[in-house]
C-alpha cells in the first residue's frame, strides 16, 4: 500500500504594529496614571480607551477627558486554565465602566480571594465599585493597570 504523505507546517510572520498618535497618547497617559477617553462631537459619548474616531458616527473625536479612577464592574469571567503570558489562574477578567466614561474597559481584577470561586463570583455579581490600580513601573501598555475593589 502507498505510504500516505503528510508534512508538518509552521507559520512564523513578522509584523510591526503602529499604535498611532491617539493610542500612543492613551498609553503615555497610563504612565502618568491617567485613563483617558475621547469625546465624539456627534453622539457626545466619552469613548474609552481614547481613540481618534467614533465608529458609530463615523466622525473624528475631539476633546480628551480623564475618566475614573473609580468605576462600576459590569460583568466578569473567571479563567481557570493557564495560558502562556498570562498570570497563573484563576484570573478574573472584567468589563468596567469608569466614572465619566460611556464605554467599558476590559482588564484583570486583582486582590480577590479566589479560594472559593463560587463565593468570589457571588460578590462580583453584585456589580461592585472598583478602582484602577497601577503596577510599580507603568510601561505605557494596557497591562500597566488592573482593577481592584474600591
Amino acid at each position: 500500500m502507498t505510504e500516505l504523505v503528510s508534512i508538518p507546517g509552521h507559520w512564523d510572520f513578522d509584523y510591526t504594529y503602529f499604535a498611532g498618535e491617539a493610542a500612543s497618547r492613551f498609553f503615555a497617559e497610563l504612565r502618568n496614571t491617567r485613563v483617558m477617553g475621547a469625546t465624539c462631537p456627534d453622539c457626545r459619548r466619552v469613548l474609552v480607551p481614547a481613540r481618534s474616531f467614533c465608529d458609530a458616527c463615523f466622525q473624528r473625536t475631539t476633546d480628551w477627558v480623564e475618566v475614573g479612577p473609580e468605576g462600576t464592574l459590569e460583568t466578569f469571567t473567571i479563567i481557570t486554565a493557564a495560558f502562556p503570558g498570562l498570570p497563573e489562574p484563576p484570573i478574573v477578567m472584567a468589563y468596567v465602566t469608569l466614572d465619566g466614561a460611556d464605554t467599558a474597559l476590559v482588564n484583570l481584577v486583582l486582590g480577590l480571594d479566589l479560594s472559593d470561586i463560587g463565593a468570589a463570583a457571588a460578590g462580583l455579581q453584585r456589580q461592585p465599585r472598583v478602582r484602577v490600580q497601577y503596577g510599580p513601573e507603568p510601561q505605557g501598555r494596557i497591562t500597566d493597570f488592573a482593577f481592584v475593589l474600591a
Binding site: F18, G20, A23, S24
Partner: peptide
C-alpha cells in the same frame, strides 16, 4: 509609508471618510 501617527484603522478611516 510607516506613518506612525496613525494605526491601521486610522489609515482606513481617513480614506473611507474622504471617499464618503
Amino acid at each position: 509609508f510607516a506613518d506612525g501617527r496613525r494605526n491601521l484603522q486610522e489609515l482606513i478611516f481617513d480614506t473611507v471618510r474622504a471617499a464618503v
